[in-house]
């Protein structure tokens, strides 16, 4: 590129509200993710992080507000349409297909390669590349059943499965939760590796240290509302926000 323009916005969320049945959970949530960024959505248990992700994916029946992915409105679309437009989702409970093998899990997530609006190729994934990124998966072999893997291994598989869809942006829900410290470290490496390959990531996180390791910017969510937005450095400096809304 010749001009040094600011990177284009990938995801814009404005006035997002969502409900489980009659329970109103998200209140006018707004944020954005730019191309190439890793952004952390932070908040304590029950703050609404997962709900935000599910709402973006179209998984909540009752929702309101605008969500734009590369300028296109996706707020009224079905989950499969949204995924096909290039938004990838890694759920917190992983939701591996336990009756399918590793190779089959990857196959389920497969989508055609994508290009950016400027016609340059977007990051593209093959099982081979993913096995290189996660040597553990490679060791187990493609025929291992999803149900016969440890939590950490399933975490790698669920990320790989979503990457097979070659998403522009990955929604990564609490990658560090409930896995061994070694895996947490691997996850951090993985996020940085993905970033270096041009994948943008919105991750949800409770743990400030993990977020600091990998993210550029952060939003802090509490009771379904955004309470803070800024760079990681600003969040690190803001003792007040960290004490009120996060577990340190």
């Amino acid at each position: 590129m010749i001009h040094r323009e600011p990177p284009p916005t990938l995801l814009t969320v404005e006035g997002l509200n969502a409900w489980y049945g009659a329970a109103h959970i998200l209140f006018d949530v707004g944020f954005e993710v730019k191309r190439g960024e890793v952004v952390a959505l932070m908040g304590r248990n029950g703050a609404g992080k997962s709900t935000t992700f599910k709402t973006l994916m179209g998984l909540l029946e009752r929702r309101k507000g605008t969500v734009k992915l590369m300028g296109q409105d996706i707020s009224g679309r079905s989950p499969s349409q949204i995924a096909r437009m290039g938004l990838g989702f890694v759920p917190e409970d992983r939701r591996i297909f336990t009756d399918l093998t590793i190779a089959e899990n990857l196959e389920v997530g497969r989508q055609a390669a994508r290009r950016w609006p400027d016609d340059s190729p977007a990051p593209e994934w093959t099982p081979q590349k993913l096995y290189d990124l996660f040597p553990n998966l490679k060791e187990m072999g493609p025929d291992r059943l999803g149900g016969r893997m440890s939590g950490g291994e399933q975490q790698m598989l669920t990320v790989s499965r979503t990457l097979m869809g070659n998403p522009y942006l990955v929604l990564l829900d609490e990658p560090s939760e409930g896995v061994a410290p070694v895996i947490v470290e691997q996850m951090a490496h993985m996020i940085l590796a993905l970033k270096s390959q041009g994948v943008s990531i919105l991750l949800s996180e409770q743990n400030v240290h993990f977020a600091e390791l990998v993210s550029d910017r952060a939003y802090v969510l509490e009771k379904g509302q955004i309470r803070f937005s800024g760079t990681m450095a600003e969040l690190a400096a803001n003792e007040e926000v960290r004490r009120s809304y996060l577990t340190v």
Binding site: M57, L59, S78, P79, S80, Q81, A83, R84, F89, P91, R95, F97, T98, D99, L100, E104, E107, V108, G109, Q111, R161, T162, G165
Partner: peptide, 24 residues
Amino acid sequence: TRWGTLVRAATQDREMLSALGVHQ
């Protein structure tokens, strides 16, 4: 077949399948 794989996946978790971009 890919179709069969998707069917088996659908047997387990259709919501996840749609979040992976499969029109069901």
